[in-house]
Design a protein around this nucleic acid. Structure first.
Lengths: 346, 346
DNA sequence: CTGAAAGCGCTTACAG
DNA sequence: CTGAAAGCGCTTACAG
């Protein structure tokens, strides 16, 4: 009932398992196996549809040809798209992907890391949660091939691949100012995570550069753990509280989505009553009427670089650190066009 | 450098690896190991943070505690959400998930199945592509635990979990008719896949029941392989070709999205110029103005049932076939409200 | 040019 | 109540 093994081939070919192994691993030349024997084995393997048992191989070599991918939420548009390309790219190198979602919970992340260690993955692609420093440091210390995504831990020198959050947010703010908006609010998540900080910093920097005010009360933080209903109600209250508000910047895709929902419930017309810009692109932003201007991440590039960097680590002992920061793109749509009249008073 | 093994514990506890294995596998009672020895081993294992090597265990037992998940496209909203819950549910049983996207290509699906076999997954959750009958039949013949999702192969008796496509489409058509629409078109994919057939059948049946005409020219099929641009341009041409068209049913989420894009480009106002209804729910449908009426799939239930059925197979030899069909829900939004004037002539 | 043997880390039938 | 030993399917250092 089991698959056929190297022994079966050896028996049928009348040689030893050793020889079969050599040939099948492309070491025929190196080990100076005769051409006839070599061919016979290859033919036999093809005929019997021999598939090496990866467990046995892994046990022996210590390599599983598997990488662990830890994302925040595989159902999120950004992470799902990255995951898809990561899987495709990994496949090119013969690696498979085990994945898991953290929901931004340190506990879940620890659990996932444990399971992946258990499973002896060869390398890790990790979206770190808050307070994951210790675990990441441990992996680094154990010299495990690893690359962080979406965010990094400033205290720990590791590989990472990420979008230029500062620049993306800077461009967004600058664009809003250029379009003539004056009273701009920001909705972000309550988290000390670096990517959110940098988006906020980029935004502030642009405001400062252009001498536009950005008082504390124009900033709203929503907990990651809030349900959709809670988030929407908080955003609504926040918006209602700021008279004369004419534009909002949402620092991540799902907040942008909640924001659209909030504005809809408030009866405010995007592009007309209020301008909207969000980090990350999404079908909703593209096809909403009016289209929602956004800061798009280079998803393909991110995924490709993640695998690139990881494969680099996997293939050599050269532990040079790779930190890749990719440019964000401002995608202009109709949600920020001042051409229409701008009034907001409730 | 390697982790610590059963041998290490045995040595430190002054017992044999056998005893350690028994205790660690909860067979202390059964094997009548003394309480003191048992406790000593447990303590030691905790102290040393012993993690069993899954490869070795798998090699010995033939079980990897891994399941393979084959979806059409992990970046698609429906599949990403199912995948997320599948992963969570599998985790509860100690299983991890290896996944892959087929892009509806038989070749890719075959490749994925090969890799998963290679990796000795214990069970499969498969979204079959066209022409995958042979491979599925092989798995069935080899008595591999397996459950199909989203669609099934009528010729092969297998487990599956899926939404009631017929009923969902029937309800959609009936609803359109009740709302007063008379000239209704359907946009689907060119594929003989059963789920699309059933959606079409459900639609036709409702039309027939209500004695509404549904001539062939009201049906447009788009190849799965079409790019977004191609699909949109085909949909636009199709719509322009039907004078008096007042409603469209899209048989799957991405076609609905393309449809919205097409109508936007044509300058037609959804809900006003034309009614729209799509299979599958999506943030875009919920938050579009007007909201897009849709036939929602019970994603949580689908995922939970998938794991349920698979775990059932995995845990027993009882090869009773489980075929779960879950109800679809019509989510009514503003894209199909006849209250507004309906005119369409170009 | 090829093979016997050890060993990766487990589990389990067998023996005592 | 506990242990010695075989074996899962590979790879590889060693020997000839």
């Amino acid at each position: 009932m089991k698959g056929i093994s190297i022994k079966d081939i050896a028996k049928q070919a009348g040689v030893s398992p050793t020889t079969v192994s050599f040939v099948l691993n492309g070491k025929a030349k190196e080990k100076r196996i005769s051409d006839q024997v070599s061919k016979k084995i290859l033919k036999l393997a093809a005929k019997l549809k021999y598939k090496p048992n990866q467990l046995a191989r892994g046990l022996r070599t210590g390599k599983t040809k598997t990488i662990g991918l830890i994302v925040e939420d595989i159902a999120n548009h950004f992470f799902a798209n990255v995951a898809k390309i990561v899987e495709e790219e990994a496949d090119k190198f013969g690696y498979k992907v085990l994945y898991g979602s953290t929901e931004d919970s340190q506990v879940k992340a620890k659990g996932l890391l444990e399971v992946l260690e258990y499973r002896q993955v060869d390398g890790y692609i990790i979206t770190p949660t808050p307070n994951l420093d210790k675990e990441i440091e441990q992996l680094r210390h154990a010299r495990k091939p690893m690359v962080l995504m979406d965010r990094y831990l400033p205290q720990i020198p590791t590989n990472y691949v990420m979008v230029n959050n500062f620049q993306g947010a800077f461009d967004a703010a600058e664009y809003l100012l250029k379009m003539g908006y004056g009273k701009i609010a920001v909705v972000t998540i309550t988290s000390e995570q670096i990517q959110m900080k940098e988006r906020l910093n980029g935004f502030s920097a642009a405001m400062k550069t252009h001498k536009a005010p950005f008082p504390r009360k124009m900033l709203k933080k929503i907990p990651f753990t809030a349900t959709k209903e809670e988030a929407v109600s908080q955003i609504k209250a926040f918006i209602k509280d700021i008279p004369g508000l004419d534009a909002i910047f949402f620092t991540t895709n799902y907040l942008g989505i909640y924001g659209i929902e909030s504005l809809k419930e408030l009866g405010l017309k995007i592009g007309k009553d209020i301008a909207v810009i969000s980090f990350d692109d999404h079908d909703l932003f593209r096809l909403h009427t009016p289209g929602i201007t956004c800061v798009a991440q280079p998803i393909h590039d991110i995924a490709r670089n993640l695998i690139q960097v990881l494969m680099n680590e996997l293939s050599q002992n050269n532990h040079q650190i790779n930190q890749v920061v990719l440019p964000a793109t401002l995608v202009k749509r109709e949600s920020c066009t001042k051409s229409v009249s701008l009034t907001l008073e409730k």
